[in-house]
Simulated scan of single mutants.
Amino acid sequence: MSTSASETRVADAPAQNWVDRWAPAPLRPYARLARLDRPIGTWLLLLPCWWSIALAADGLPDFRLLILFVIGAVVMRGAGCTFNDIVDRDFDGRVERTRSRPIPSGAVSVKQAWAFLVLQCLVGLAVLLALSPLAILLGVSSLAIVAAYPFMKRITYWPQFVLGLAFNWGALMGYAAATDRLALAPVLLYLGSIAWTIGYDTIYAHQDKDDDALIGVKSTALRFGAATHRWMWMFYGVMAITLVAVGISARLGPIYYVGIALAVAHLIWQIRSLDIDDSGRCLKLFRSNRDFGFIVFAAIALARLFT
């Protein structure tokens, strides 16, 4: 790889992120390929795992599981992004926001990306084998959805739905890892989180809608268009209703509902603040879903601790 390519900062990475500032130069392209310079995706993958671990707790959530899922989320989000970039390398080179990614920019070759993908998957496997038998089974069963996702934007305007299926699998796995069983509450959490993902990733997809339309890539942003706000009320509304149902099913106390009221207020703020033609605003609102996730986690954890 050329020195200039290896030093290229990805367009939508935060300015002065830790990869650009501190990572050794030879490792920067791989860190960018794994999206370590843009941790929001890792948070959005991790938080449903933490929700269900807290939901399964009798008091404080299992700290060992919280840490294992941090490691798993980092490497598996990185592996998913690496695979996605291998598959989408031709599309990415034709989109303004993504042409600076490591593969289309030439910082990482396709062969190097495959080797890096294998390494990340091996670390993820080590984490998976430290979990309960049911969690291992669930983890293996998610691979088909993860592998299918990068191809969905070619055939359907609903790739965000498939992303929701994959990205929120941790809502099932975290509970299974803690209890080696499933219950209605984590299943409800999983289903509601799919609607949440469709919502926040639609916001994200509005950044690329013009380029996507030109090159033939499909998304809910293109499907909803000017009606996006109405769809957002529906999907975020489903998430809000589901969170209430989770509290009822798991018999969580009043503290939980106070937290969920704050979380729902955050979702309402996102919808009311959304300007689908302002890419900077879309990115800011998309990233704010980490805050929503922390509010939900705090609501569940505090309810379990004090109920």
Rank of each mutant, 00 (worst) to 15 (best):
R154L: 10
S273Y: 00
H206T: 01
I136R: 13
V258E: 15
E96F: 05
A126H: 12
F91Y: 05
T156W: 04
M152G: 08
V19I: 11
R38M: 07
A205M: 02
D85E: 06
V74R: 02
R38F: 03
A263C: 13
R21C: 09
G80P: 08
G293I: 11
A115N: 11
A56Y: 07
G164T: 04
V162D: 07
D201L: 00
F167V: 03
A147D: 08
I260S: 08
A185D: 04
I40F: 15
L302Q: 07
D12C: 09
A25Q: 08
M239E: 15
Q207I: 00
G80R: 05
S105P: 10
P39G: 07
F235M: 12
A23C: 14
L285A: 02
P29Q: 04
V74T: 14
R230P: 09
D291H: 09
D92T: 01
L125E: 12
R101G: 02
Q160A: 05
T179Q: 15
R28F: 05
A176L: 09
S6N: 09
Y257M: 11
A23N: 05
I103K: 00
G237E: 07
A130E: 10
G93A: 04
L188V: 07
F91R: 01
A23D: 06
I136V: 15
I53E: 00
Y236D: 06
D210C: 07
A144S: 15
L134S: 04
W22F: 15
L191S: 11
A263W: 13
G41P: 01
D85Y: 07
W233Y: 15
V246Y: 00
A113S: 08
P61E: 13
D90S: 11
G237H: 08
G72R: 12
S141W: 12
L68H: 11
L214T: 05
D37L: 01
R89A: 11
A177C: 08
L191T: 12
A298M: 15
P29A: 04
L36D: 05
A79W: 04
A185T: 03
T156F: 08
I248R: 06
H206I: 00
I268A: 14
V187S: 01
L214Q: 14
L68G: 12
L137C: 13
L68T: 14
V70H: 10
R304K: 14
I71L: 15
W169S: 07
E7T: 12
D275E: 10
